[in-house]
Design a protein around this nucleic acid. Structure first.
Lengths: 213, 213
DNA sequence: GTCTATAAGGCGATAGAC
DNA sequence: GTCTATCGCCTTATAGAC
């Protein structure tokens, strides 16, 4: 029997991968609501439906689970921004960016909260990523927005704060979900909330940035 | 010597109040970055510059400190929204609301993060407040916005999502401060960042909501 | 009021049987 | 691979001297 921790070069069996995935999903559940420090291995093991020593057979430490989740997250988190196309129509690009970010908040709220927890606590593990690949990507897209402004397709504005405002408004629906639901009351379905948010934000940014159609 | 825990009806001395204030400031420091669960009394005592038993002489439990901080926060947090005046000019009201919220993010970032931590973790202690006084206040202001829309002073939009978008964009500068700084680089002063954000958001909302002026 | 010492329990991680 | 048992540390909170 291949032992995961001793067989780094060896292919994992399908069953092992499935178990690891169950654990990671449980860890995501717990980390995203309690934060890394506030989570216990017992809680994760409980959600995963296994004993603590059994879980620790697959992931030697709490940090190991968190590291895998953060790596995965960072690999996917910026995809929507990468898709931002300099040759596309500004209105189309910005609207579809907003929509994709809203979809991520709706479909992957735990990932959004995991990220929010990390940033909120000072980003101890990913500060280099923020100052490195994240900043590089943002700087690149800021230049795209500046070129759109220069050619009159977009109202003059600070591109950095434009990006911040799209991030914050969309992620809000995942990170502050409890508050949003409390304020809207129980009568608002998930689908309706999503559509209402999309429509409001699309209008706000199209008009606010003077994006022609 | 009056002992705080035994003298609930007795007036606290000025020195006692000062000590309690030092402790609460230290607790706010730690809670706002580590979250309640991730914080330890040792860390708070360390920041406060006193021993753990000494701290526990003033606040019997970790919860006691957190409760006082949350009570204070909730008492002040909604002041800017309360100031929203139905008889005022919509453009003025919304712009000054944005500015006040941005000032709070700049001047009280720890309070903002304390609140964010609480919501992010499912608002275990304040769900009744969210569904009660918070929802009531928002509902009231939503009606104000609706009346403005009805009289043509404001573009038609969903008032709830308008409020959410102001909350999220302004609080972002406190809650995601580490990310904002990383992306903007070290050359951006606090004042410049604040002014740039205020100007961007003011433009976005004034144009996005078709607020005349 | 503040200290040292410590009780009592939670938690991360390991040992070793099966 | 999974379990029971446990080590050792950390953390909350208290006891009691000063």
């Amino acid at each position: 029997m291949a032992v995961p921790r001793a067989a780094k070069t060896q292919r994992r069996t399908r069953i092992q991968e499935e178990k690891e995935e169950i654990i990671l999903q449980a860890a995501l559940d717990v980390f995203s609501t309690k934060g890394f420090l506030g989570s216990t291995i017992d809680q994760i093991a409980d959600v995963a439906g296994m004993s603590k020593p059994n879980l620790l057979y697959y992931f030697r430490t709490k940090e190991a689970m968190h590291r895998v989740l953060m790596d995965r997250l960072l690999a996917n988190w910026l995809e929507p921004l990468r898709a931002f196309d300099a040759d596309g129509d500004p209105r189309e690009e910005i609207c579809s960016y907003i929509r994709r970010k809203l979809e991520m908040a709706r479909d992957f709220p735990r990932e959004s909260r995991l990220f929010a927890n990390e940033i909120l606590q000072g980003a101890p593990n990913i500060e280099d990523v923020l100052k490195g690949s994240l900043k590089d990507l943002v700087d690149e897209k800021v230049e795209v927005i500046r070129s759109w402004i220069a050619s009159g397709k977009l109202a003059a504005c600070d591109p950095y704060h434009l990006i911040f405002s799209i991030w914050s408004t969309t992620q809000h629906y995942a990170d502050f979900d409890v508050q949003v639901r409390a304020v809207l009351g129980g009568n608002d379905s998930d689908d309706h909330r999503f559509e209402a948010a999309a429509q409001f934000l699309e209008n706000l940014f199209v008009r606010g940035l003077k994006l022609g159609g």
